[in-house]
Design a protein around this nucleic acid. Structure first.
Length: 667
DNA sequence: CAAACAACCTTTTTT
DNA sequence: AGGTTGTTTG
């Protein structure tokens, strides 16, 4: 038997092969420190950049984009994968300012949006239609709940079966981490381990349902992209050759599925640079694992590892505190951030307030003070663990007439009335979208789950369609007075020739009276409706509008847009997760109260607690000059039934010398 | 039998 | 502020 010939692969294959330019417009050497310079100018092969907080990660990526373009690489052949679309736009904009407009042509976006556009082209190859609907988390849960009810029927075991959000979390994690359902259960929900088989069956039904109704959830956008690239050699090769240079930001927050995707994308050239910081990994609930970073050299043999440690963001007193927070982590990869800024700057403040409202008042007054000292509101941010934690502060800020924009927490698009309107548009785009049908049918008087299901069955079976829906048909299922108006509206806007503006207008005409009936606070909601109309009018195609609403929904609610319009300055309120990668002159971290931050539900789980610590680290490292950590004393926690009185353990454990301690009192 | 209503529960963090 | 559950109404 003959041994198969050994294969020798040329490192410099057809793909990249770019040569360093003889002369560059930008003087990269003097603009960057040696580590950054190396990261920017190493052209080929896999590179891992470990960059601590504030070390100029973004600057490095921006300069690399510029450098690659200066090397003569077609910008459309450079791919920059980021965590949010906002951050990729920002980076490309900065690169364009640095070099020139060519940088705007670089392909950029999130993993999900990248998957989406590839799948729109190749959907038929994997058994989907190209105008598939994207399910957001709420939609997925709705479908799962529907199937859950069907599956359980009248079983007595109902009580012990996980609820829809748990089911969704388990299924999603299994997809994102490439682990089996039972493995996920074993790790995180051992009390449901007995149900593993049922959950697996339910997941099969869920997957089949999505195919049947031409739907993809967030995970599918990744999963099917990976499947497409694995299965179809041609697509894989073309796509990989198309993007000769791939960069990935925030690599510590990618999961196994995403790293699979990166591997496939680079299969033809291995020109990939990933940037990340293990100390800032805060998305494990989504299947992210900072070990992805550590595994990178294994996944991409021969990877060059570059570490950037010089911090340009914060003053030394802030760095000393943040270094100590992460120093106390049980699992850490040694890094020692330093700055050349010297010991100038104030020590961070740790401020105890007697109540939640005192905390809000303190922050509000402090902000007014700062503004008088000439600090712009744009340079100030208030950060918190959970979206709702800013409610009390929002009231105080409004009283004091301080305009703010809030990021994170409950989103515009998740409000019931906004979803209602979107659902009407979705059934027009995809008549098989049963979730949306269900939603809009239930708005009708006299229509409940049973009647809605009957209509949906007929629609999916093809017995009826939007064009020939009549009130008479519906009366045969169930009676209701609004039915005629609904069908008329849908039939009117169904043709593709009807513009998106007219579609929205027709829906609003029909929907507004329903909204008035449904909600006591319909006047507030009215504003959202108009905001939605304004957003929709910017789009030419219904499909792209709906896709953007699912993938990159506007995060600001109506109130905030208004504030922004009247003042050109505004304060930032944000969840810590949404503040990732950003920085401000002054940062407040509020509710640093043990039981709230870290969250009480992390207690007893070391891994979760460590993630809370990293979250605190991310929050505090956002500050350039002032860091003010506040907490209220004596909050009653319903869940644990305990009175929370201690500051966050991550703060409590810090040596006295690292911060100034204050207490808020009345005059 | 299906829908409407009223009383709890439950609530991270995001694509 | 939403959903889930149990009860009453049509």
């Amino acid at each position: 038997m003959n041994a198969p010939p050994k294969v020798f692969t040329l490192r410099r294959s057809s793909s990249g092969g770019a040569q360093p330019p003889k002369q560059t417009k930008i003087d990269y050497k003097s603009a960057l420190n040696p580590a950054q310079y190396e990261a920017v100018t190493t052209l080929d092969g896999p590179i891992l950049v470990i960059a601590g907080a504030g070390t100029g990660k973004t600057t490095t990526l921006v300069h690399r984009v510029s450098y690659l373009v200066e090397c003569g690489i077609d910008p459309r052949r450079i791919l920059l994968l980021t965590f949010t679309r906002k951050s990729s736009e920002e980076m490309l904009r900065r690169a364009a300012v640095l070099l020139d407009g060519r940088c705007e042509d670089v392909a950029g976006g999130t993993f999900h949006s990248f998957g989406n556009s590839l799948l729109r082209k190749h959907a038929p190859q994997i058994g989907f239609g190209s105008s598939f609907t994207i399910l957001d988390q709420g939609d997925s849960e709705d479908v799962i709940n529907l199937l859950r009810t069907q599956y359980l029927g009248k079983d007595a075991d109902k009580k012990r079966f996980p609820r829809k959000n748990t089911l969704n979390a388990v299924m999603s994690k299994s997809v994102n981490t490439l682990m089996s359902i039972s493995k996920v259960l074993e790790n995180e929900y051992p009390h449901y381990l007995e149900q593993a088989n049922s959950i697996e069956q339910l997941k099969e039904r869920y997957d089949a349902y999505k195919v049947k109704h031409n739907m993809m959830d967030y995970d599918d956008l990744l999963l099917h992209t990976v499947a497409l690239l694995k299965q179809f050699t041609g697509v894989r090769e073309t796509t990989s050759k198309q993007y000769a240079y791939v960069m990935v930001d925030e690599y510590q927050d990618t999961n196994k599925l995403q790293s699979e995707l990166v591997k496939l994308l680079c299969s033809q050239h291995n020109n990939v640079m990933v940037v990340g910081d293990d100390s800032q990994s805060i998305y494990s609930f989504r299947g992210a694992n900072f070990r992805n970073i550590m595994d990178f050299p294994k996944d991409f043999p021969g990877a060059k590892v570059i570490t950037i440690e010089e911090n340009y963001r914060s003053t030394q007193p802030i760095l000393s505190l943040t270094n100590q927070i992460i120093e106390n982590a049980t699992e850490k990869f040694p890094k020692n951030l330093f700055t050349q800024k010297g010991i100038t700057g104030a020590k961070p403040h740790i401020v105890a307030a007697h109540s939640e409202n005192y905390q809000s008042q303190y922050i509000t007054e402090k902000i007014l003070e700062l503004r008088e000292d000439g600090v712009s509101l744009n340079d100030i941010a208030v950060l918190f663990r959970n979206g709702y934690m800013s409610f009390d502060l929002e009231i105080e800020l409004t009283k004091a007439n301080i305009p703010f924009v809030k990021y994170g927490g409950m989103k515009f698009i998740e409000a019931a009335h906004v979803k209602d309107i979107i659902s009407h548009l979705r059934v027009v785009e995809n008549p098989k979208d049963a979730v949306s049908w269900h939603r809009i049918l239930l708005l009708l008087d006299g229509v409940g789950p049973k009647a809605a299901q009957a209509v949906i069955d007929d629609l999916v079976a093809g017995n009826i369609s939007i064009q020939n829906l009549t009130p008479e048909y519906f009366t045969s299922v169930r009676s209701g007075e609004n039915v005629g108006a609904l069908f008329q509206t849908l039939a009117e806007i169904y043709p593709e020739t009807v513009s998106i503006q007219d579609k929205i207008a027709a829906i609003l005409k029909y929907y507004k009276p329903i909204m008035k009936n449904q909600y006591d606070d319909h006047q507030k909601r009215q504003k959202d409706v108009e905001a939605l109309r304004n957003i929709a009018e910017r789009y030419r195609s219904l499909n792209s509008f709906l896709t953007d609403m699912a993938l990159e929904p506007p995060s600001e609610s109506q109130v905030d847009i208004e504030a922004e319009g009247t003042d050109d300055e505004s304060l930032t309120l944000s969840t810590i997760h949404s503040a990732k990668g950003l920085e401000w002159h002054t940062v407040f971290v509020m509710y640093a109260l043990d039981g709230m931050f870290p969250s009480a539900r992390a207690a007893g789980n070391e891994k979760d607690m460590e993630e809370e610590r990293r979250l605190m680290y991310v929050a505090c490292t956002r500050a350039k000059v002032n860091l003010i950590i506040t907490y209220p004393m004596g909050i009653y926690d319903r869940e644990s039934g305990m009175l929370l009185t201690k500051p966050s353990r991550f703060i409590e454990e810090l040596p006295e010398s690292l911060a100034e301690r204050w207490v808020v009192s009345e005059e």
